[in-house]
Design a protein around this nucleic acid. Structure first.
Lengths: 125, 125
DNA sequence: CTAAACCCTGCCCTCAGGGTCAAGGTCAAG
DNA sequence: CTTGACCTTGACCCTGAGGGCAGGGTTTAG
């Protein structure tokens, strides 16, 4: 299949597919005219990349999953490295939620502070 | 004061100060030799920008706060536009926390799923 | 006089692509 | 055979908030 077929079936853009290749995640054959051709495995790979990116992994972090798939496993996440990647990402998300929670508290403090300051000023004006 | 004095006193880098200028947040005088010179007000502005960026606002979103400061207010956040910006940012943070919470649930589901799949495979091997 | 410390502009880099372009290939209808 | 529609290729600039480096001018201390 050509790149636009692959992109359509995987639900991504042609541009994205070329980007994954530039990151070393795909190595399509080339026809005599230079066109890339993709296999059914490549389709699974691109679907996996899409799913992992939507989980907030970087393209680089999808590497172990892709290796796991290409090793012949039905699922990309049954290899130890994939489980580790999941756990690492969960820890990142937890940290980020904590940060944002603190941030929200700071923001509401600032907001109520600024509001009350305005009220005081209006009253004493 | 020169740029490195300003940067040191505000706790940011020289590069950051020049970036704020490129975003239209500062307009320093230039000496005959081309060196930028900053006022005490500029120092307050840079400190304010730093604080707002650490709250996750974009440089562009700091604009109303800076205007408020330059209008002669003691605080950058007592103007109506600043309060609106705070509320907008709080809403963004809330949305982001919700997204990350959903994401975390998806990740733990995937993780336990992959773990149990591995266990089943080991048992039936 | 010289070296250190400071200042300037300008270019390339991040990350996951998006947008746009020119050039060329492929396939059908006319 | 040609036209047109559609496909592909590589190449370039863009994002946000700067970091890093190059190359050059200026100022200050010894």
């Amino acid at each position: 299949m050509h790149i636009s077929d692959l992109a359509a079936e995987a639900g991504v853009t042609v541009k994205a597919v070329r980007y994954y290749e530039s990151q070393g995640l795909l190595k399509p054959h080339r026809e005599a005219n230079g066109y890339r051709t993709y296999s059914g495995e490549d389709l699974l790979v691109v679907r996996e990349i899409k799913a992992l990116l939507s989980l907030g992994l970087t393209a680089e972090q999808t590497y172990p999953f892709i290796e796991c798939l290409r090793a012949g496993n039905d699922r990309a996440d049954v290899c130890p490295a994939s489980l580790t990647a999941y756990r690492t990402r969960i820890a990142e998300v937890d940290r980020r939620i904590d940060e944002l929670t603190d941030l929200r508290a700071r923001l509401t403090d600032l907001l109520t502070d600024a509001e009350s300051w305005r009220t005081r000023v209006r009253e004493t004006r």
